[in-house]
């Protein structure tokens, strides 16, 4: 039981990093990123591919971060011409493109079977202390990302981001560089998602195209909406709650008499119902964003 909860906690902390990343984009800036898993995948595959060729783990992680920052900035630039809904579809398309490439370039990514035996950390420790160490590491990285996120949204730049979210035309007319703000927030937040991908790959020692399915993005969206779009503390709480919900329902077919492959649908159903329910009844989430009345000054 304790082992199970420890495992859930580690994955929840890693997903918390993803939630912070998405919150910077969607919560603070109003960028509907439906392709977050793409940045996760960049980090994960950078780690997987470089360690497979014998590179030390910090190098793989660094490559992932740099690539994700560049990709994030490029995707942010797409916001130059695209209205929010179009941009959302474009991000989904790009993430799917990445998944197709991961699935079909066997020489680089080993195709559908994925890259296994990625070296993990703390391999000298026993199983339980290993997970404890992992929890410490993931929590530390999460705290770091939270701190960065607070710095970004608390500064004048954060006010500009919220203005871009609420009134993009007004922001532009006040002389703010709307596209530049989007590019910068993507370049800051995308590496967080890549970092989460890299950590996750080290933790479970595997990365495959199955992990880049759009459902992962959807899970993070649920966390962010349940926790409270725009509130960094809230989305971490949301990550913990949704991850626990998603993992506890793993045992749903022990309780109810349904075939296990049908129960997989029931688990997804619980997550989908949580997202739709919160959007419907409490769109601010558990911990809604607090806005000051006078918020934007140039």
């Amino acid at each position: 039981m304790l082992d199970f909860l420890l495992g859930v906690a580690v994955v929840a902390a890693i997903y918390g990093i993803l939630a912070i990343s998405l919150n910077l984009q969607a919560g603070a800036t109003g960028l509907l990123n439906f392709g977050l898993v793409g940045f996760f995948g960049i980090g994960a595959y950078a780690t997987g591919i470089s360690t497979m060729h014998g590179a030390p783990w910090p190098l793989g992680m660094a490559i992932g971060l740099v690539l994700a920052a560049a990709a994030g900035a490029a995707v942010g630039r797409l916001g130059r011409t695209l209205a929010a809904e179009y941009w959302a579809i474009a991000t989904l398309a790009l993430a799917e493109l990445l998944r197709l490439v991961a699935l079909n370039t066997d020489s680089l990514t080993r195709g559908p079977q994925g890259i296994s035996a990625v070296p993990g950390f703390f391999s000298g420790l026993g199983p339980q202390s290993r997970d404890l160490a992992w929890l410490g590491l993931a929590a530390l990285v999460l705290a770091l990302c939270w701190w960065v996120s607070q710095r970004v949204t608390g500064a004048q730049f954060g006010r500009v981001l919220r203005l871009v979210r609420e009134q993009p035309d007004l922001a532009a007319s006040l002389g703010h560089d709307v596209v530049g703000a989007k590019v910068r927030v993507m370049a800051i937040s995308a590496p967080m998602a890549a970092l989460a991908g890299s950590l996750y790959t080290h933790y479970i020692s595997f990365i495959g195209p199955g992990q880049l399915e759009p459902f992962a993005t959807f899970l993070v969206w649920t966390m962010v909406v349940v926790g409270g779009l725009g509130n960094a503390f809230g989305v971490i709480a949301g990550a913990a709650i949704v991850q626990l919900l998603f993992d506890v329902t793993r045992f749903i077919d022990d309780v109810f008499d349904i075939p296990s492959e049908n129960a997989g649908g029931l688990r997804i159903l619980v997550v989908g119902a949580a997202l739709l329910g919160f959007l419907y009844f409490r769109s601010g989430g558990l911990v809604p964003e607090r806005l000051r009345r006078i918020d934007a000054r140039s």
Binding site: L32, F34, E85, A88, F215, F218, W221, T222, V225, I258, E261, N262, A263, G264, G265, L266, I268, L269, V271, G272, A273, L275, L276, L279, Y280
Partner: peptide, 18 residues
């Protein structure tokens, strides 16, 4: 739009469960 994504996942989840 986020709601329609949720609905899309829900539809498939319900069918898979049944």
């Amino acid at each position: 739009m986020i709601g329609s994504l949720a609905l899309s996942i829900l539809v498939r989840a319900v069918i898979q469960t049944v």
